[in-house]
Write a protein that binds this DNA or RNA. Sequence first.
DNA 1: CTAATTATAGACTTACAATATCTATAATAT
DNA 2: ATATTATAGATATTGTAAGTCTATAATTAG
Lengths: 146, 146
Amino acid sequence: MKFSKATNYALHSMVFLAVIPSGKTIGVKSLADVQKVSPTYLSKVLTNLVKAGFVESVTGVNGGYKLIKDPKEITFLDVIQAIEGKASFFQCGLENNIHDRRNCMIENVMNEAEQKMEEHLTLNTIAGVAEKVNADMITHIHTAAN
Amino acid sequence: MKFSKATNYALHSMVFLAVIPSGKTIGVKSLADVQKVSPTYLSKVLTNLVKAGFVESVTGVNGGYKLIKDPKEITFLDVIQAIEGKASFFQCGLENNIHDRRNCMIENVMNEAEQKMEEHLTLNTIAGVAEKVNADMITHIHTAAN
DNA sequence: CTAATTATAGACTTACAATATCTATAATAT
DNA sequence: ATATTATAGATATTGTAAGTCTATAATTAG
Ligand code: SF4
Ligand code: SF4
């Protein structure tokens, strides 16, 4: 089971946004270049992050995206759910009443497993990885001139 | 993120196989009926469980499938991986050398999260859920006459 | 031995969501 | 006024999951 490419792009974009000087913007072109993805597609991904309230977009010359929420407060799970939604691992698909569905053991095990995963993704923030990121990663991203 | 329907079918089939009297077989038709899925498709799913060494198939009249491994020894993760493979949550997709890839923090967090999930799926076995399954579930499945 | 039953395998189709592109529009700075 | 930037909607492409169809092989009952 894999997370989508969109989620991958979103996580990387958030890290890039977190490592640049606070307040500066990065254009989608720059973010797209470094991740080898088309700007229009990445733009759609980033729009989800805007809607989630993590970043803000600025149109016009020297515009782009910038963080508007403290990256210490943005967890991996937050970013993942902003892109993938909240559908859970497992859902009983049988509408017929084979049996009493209360306390389905299969569903319980799966949901608990999902919870373990989510716990860990909640303990790790964008700020947490941003501060450990290798310096040469930063040199590849360009903030707006301004 | 969701597990596939095939995984859902596989888990249910394993539970059904675990709750019937040991040694008896269940035909794919019966397993398919109760899960509202086509027999030919379910057959493909079950073949993966055969290849994984959990069940055995018996052709001919009164044939079908039966467990050949102690369900106490078959974990949820075993079944899931038999169907979905072992691709992990996250993989760095950038071949260019943006930066030093050793100790990628993003990948680390994701893999740790996956590990937490897998730990829990390893602690739970088919036997574990089979013994807690509601009795009326069993009445819906039919073993070979024999 | 024959016929019915059952699983297997391969080729094929269908359905659907992820990924991506294109274009028109709106907002902003210079 | 013009260049620059993001947004949104329509559309196209790709890839994988899901499902079907058919021929074949194995087994058992009679
Ligand atoms: S065992 Fe759980 S998932 Fe399966 S049909 Fe029952 S309630 Fe639904
Ligand atoms: S941050 Fe990690 S996943 Fe991203 S390009 Fe670097 S090594 Fe790959």
